[in-house]
Amino acid sequence: MNNQPLLEAVNLSKRYEDGALAVNNVSFFVKPGEIFAMLGGNGAGKTTTINIFLNFIEPTSGEARINGISSHVEPLKAKQHVAFVSENVMLYTNFTAIQNLDYFVRLGGKTQYTKDDYRKVLLRVGLQEEAHNKKLKGFSKGMRQKCGIAVAILKDAPAILLDEPTSGLDPKSGFEFIQLLDSLRNEGKAILMSTHDIFRAKEIADTIGIMRQGNLVMQKSREELSGENLEQLYMNFMAGVYE
């Protein structure tokens, strides 16, 4: 497995027009087969960081790289190597789950799949077969989230960005999701996940970063964190105890 970072933030900063500093000189990387969990409260800069990776916003300075490609210099090229699942996956409600998959997967550049492939992946993410050909109008958030993950899996990009992916999921779905992430990691995907969920982060992540007011105030590997009380650590960072 190539051990070069697939996702990399290099001195990344973003200051909005109103002067607010959303991300301040943040640097980290995620290698293949790794999960990086970004913890932090609301407004900490987690989503802004992901948005920079997706070129939804441009950095004020620094660079976000996907597979070595700068996301704001060559956004189209960079996005070919990344899949994205948002906090609240929104798909076309007039389409069935399979139709949505077909559209977004082809949009992601993959045209080789059959309906059977779509069914298999939907079953893998835990969406019941009877829902596959139903329009998304009546889908719950969890069901839509599963469709979104299926899209990310089928895109088969080496890197995956997840913005609060377990938010609002019931415990069973949350557990299934973590298992899925584990299997994706085992396939060699580099995963950057923003979350509020300390316990799931601790359970799955190889590296945990804590963001506060745009700064990456802590970045520790699973090994470095072993024996530490992550919840206490997080609360202390949030309270600015170490400043």
Binding site: K77, F84, Y92, L107, G109, K155
Partner: peptide, 11 residues
């Protein structure tokens, strides 16, 4: 509807 983000997360 939120579909624009997912669309433009692709190339």
């Amino acid at each position: 509807r939120g579909t624009l983000r997912l669309t433009f997360s692709n190339a």
